[in-house]
C-alpha cells in the first residue's frame, strides 16, 4: 500500500469512527464556515478596494488621495 493510501485510509477511519460529540463539533464547524464564507464574506465583507474595480496604480492613487485630501475637499 502506498504511503498516500495509508494516510488517506487513516483519515477515513478517523472520521468514520468519531464519537457523537465529534460529529456534533464538525457540524458546528461546517455551519460556522458556511456563515463566514458563504454569507458574511460574500454579502457583507467585500474587499473595499477590489469592489472599486481599480488597478494597482489606481488603488495607490485612491489611497494617496485619501491620505492627502485638503480640508476644503469633499469626503
Amino acid at each position: 500500500m502506498t504511503v498516500f493510501k495509508k494516510i488517506f485510509n487513516f483519515y477515513v477511519d478517523g472520521f468514520k469512527n468519531q464519537s457523537k460529540s465529534s460529529r456534533k463539533l464538525w457540524f458546528i464547524i461546517l455551519i460556522k464556515l458556511f456563515i463566514m464564507f458563504a454569507i458574511l464574506k460574500v454579502f457583507f465583507f467585500k474587499d473595499f478596494l477590489k469592489s472599486k474595480e481599480l488597478n494597482e496604480k489606481e488603488k495607490s492613487e485612491y489611497i494617496i488621495n485619501n491620505l492627502t485630501k485638503q480640508n476644503d475637499e469633499p469626503n
Partner: peptide, 16 residues
C-alpha cells in the same frame, strides 16, 4: 473546533 477560523473574521474586516 469552536474557535477555529474565528480570527479570519478579523482579516475580513481589514479588507472591508
Amino acid at each position: 473546533a469552536i474557535g477555529v477560523a474565528t480570527g479570519i473574521i478579523l482579516e475580513f474586516e481589514f479588507g472591508t
